[in-house]
Amino acid sequence: MQTHAIDIQALKRDQPQPSGPAGPAETSLRMEQLNLFYNNSQALYDINLEIPRQRVTAFIGPSGCGKSSLLRCINRMNDLVDGCRVDGRLLLENEDVYDRRVDVAALRRRVGMVFQKPNPFPKSIYENVAYGLRIQGINKKRVLDEVVEKSLRAAALWEEVKDRLHESALGMSGGQQQRLVIARTIAVEPEVLLLDEPASALDPISTLKIEELIYELKSRYTIVIVTHNMQQAARVSDMTAFMYMGKLIEYDDTDTLFTNPEQKQTEDYITGRYG
């Protein structure tokens, strides 16, 4: 039996993994007893979760289960909602995101976010990507040119747009717009990328391009993705968290969760059964 177990480990190690450093991933984000309230109603209950660095972690679950709320806690997007209150701790690289001294703008530079609907600014492709740097006061053309090219290449968009950088971003296809938004987000070199249903408004081919991009990007960023598409979670993520009614039901490596989940609720959800 011993050799059997060792072989399995060897197989896991040998899998193609452009997922950053070899060996076990370190924790990037840690949630401890996290609770979230919107006025008097509770949206998240005692979430304890460790999200590994330079891996893709997916949150899945039915609508209203709290997966987007949880994602929004990470860069404090929930602060914008009236009556929203968080207790418990959420640590990014061991610093509490909800500490009084945290500069929220700085936090959001470290934790970039991409939404369901592509939201390019009504500017040129170039200016969209350069935007984050410009608001940081960086205006040197040489620096901007370099960052724009690097970010567009990283977002697998450079070849498609290099000849029309100064045309409006609104003339791009939905899939291109979403990759542009990802380029804009990574231009400021965040540590964490939050993707909230990044491909649900896109056609299957654009979806695959985004998924391929996620795979490429995880060598540099910690990625957290919320998705309704379970096959997508199965395809892109290393770890998967299943949530239901504001609670974290099961969190495991994606292979295990999709082949042999521990909880019946998880099983019923991913196989499409009545709860």
Binding site: N260, T266, E267, T271
Partner: peptide, 9 residues
């Protein structure tokens, strides 16, 4: 159907 979990098994 892309079965998962027990269906896949």
């Amino acid at each position: 159907r892309q079965p998962a979990a027990s269906d896949l098994r």
